[in-house]
Amino acid sequence: MSRGIVLFHTTTSALRGEKALKKAGFLVKLIPTPRELSSDCGFVIEFHDLPLNQLQAALNEAGLEFEIHFLP
C-alpha cells in the first residue's frame, strides 16, 4: 500500500489543501511532518492509495503550491 504525503510551505496552505481534498471526496488526514521529510510547516497531509492525477488536480484548482512524496 502506498503512503503519500503532501507537503506545503505554510500552515494555511496545508489546511486549505486538506479542505480542497475533502471537498473532492478524498480521505486524507493531517499528521505531523514525518522525520524523513524536511518541511518547516509542522504538519502535512497524509493519503493512502489515491489517484495521483486527481489529487494534484484538486490541489491545483485550489491554487496551492505543494510537493508530493511517497514513503515506504
Binding site: 500552515t11 494555511t12 493531517l30 499528521i31 505531523p32 511532518t33 510547516c41 509542522g42 504538519f43 502535512v44
Partner: peptide, 10 residues
C-alpha cells in the same frame, strides 16, 4: 498553530 505538528498545534 503552525509551529509544531502535534495534535494541539493542528
Amino acid at each position: 498553530p503552525g509551529r509544531s505538528g502535534h495534535k494541539l498545534s493542528i
